[in-house]
C-alpha cells in the first residue's frame, strides 16, 4: 500500500491522517491521535490489548493497516465513555475487582462491548469465548466474566421491567 491521506471517524470525530506505506491503525490511534487506551501489548495480534471497534466489528488495531479502514468509523475505549463519567461496565469492573494492573482492561472493555452489541444475553461460555483473544495476566479472568454476567443480568432486568 502506498502512503497517502486516510480519512477515518474516531469516536464520532472526523480525522485525516497522513500515513506511511505500512502504518497500522494502532499507530495512528495511539501516536497520532493520542487515544492511549489503545495499548501496544505485542504488536502481533496475540494479546488483544489494542482491540477497537471498526464499523461495528471487533478488530485488532495492531494488525489493521490504516489504509484498509479508510472511510470507516472507529470506536476506542474513549468513545465508549464520551461523558467522562463512570459507565455501567466500568462500575461492574470496580464492583467485581475485574482489573488489577489494568493493562488489558481497555481491550477487555472494547471486546465486551462488541460482544454485547451482537448478543445482549450471552451465556457464561459465550462470554469466555468472546474474551479468548484477550490476555489478562493478573485476574484469572473469573472476575471479568463475573462483571459481564452482572451487567447482562442488569440489562435483562431493565428490559424485563
Amino acid at each position: 500500500m502506498a502512503s497517502g491521506i486516510v480519512s477515518i471517524k474516531v469516536n464520532g470525530r472526523a480525522e485525516e491522517v497522513v500515513t506511511g506505506a505500512v502504518t497500522t491503525l494502532q499507530d495512528v490511534l495511539r501516536n497520532n491521535l493520542d487515544y492511549t487506551s489503545v495499548k501496544d501489548g505485542c504488536s502481533q495480534g496475540g494479546c488483544g490489548a489494542c482491540s477497537v471497534i471498526v464499523d461495528g466489528e471487533l478488530r485488532l488495531s495492531c494488525l489493521t493497516p490504516v489504509q484498509e479502514v479508510d472511510g470507516s468509523e472507529v470506536v476506542t475505549l474513549e468513545g465508549l465513555n464520551l461523558s467522562n463519567s463512570i459507565t455501567a461496565l466500568q462500575q461492574k469492573f470496580i464492583e467485581k475487582y475485574a482489573a488489577q494492573c489494568g493493562f488489558c482492561t481497555p481491550g477487555m472493555m472494547v471486546a465486551i462491548t462488541a460482544l454485547l452489541d451482537r448478543n445482549a444475553n450471552p451465556s457464561r461460555d459465550e462470554i469466555a469465548e468472546a474474551l479468548a483473544g484477550n490476555i489478562c495476566r493478573c485476574t484469572g479472568y473469573l472476575p471479568i466474566i463475573e462483571a459481564v454476567e452482572s451487567i447482562v443480568a442488569e440489562m435483562a432486568g431493565i428490559a424485563g421491567d
Binding site: 502481533q44 496475540g46 461460555d125 462470554i127 469466555a128 479468548a132 490476555i135 484469572g140 471479568i144
Partner: peptide, 17 residues
C-alpha cells in the same frame, strides 16, 4: 518467542475456583 508460541490458558480454560 511471542504469544502465539508462548501458550497460556485463556478465559475458556478457567475452571471453578
Amino acid at each position: 518467542r511471542d504469544f502465539q508460541t508462548y501458550q497460556m490458558p485463556g478465559a475458556v480454560d478457567m475452571p471453578e475456583v
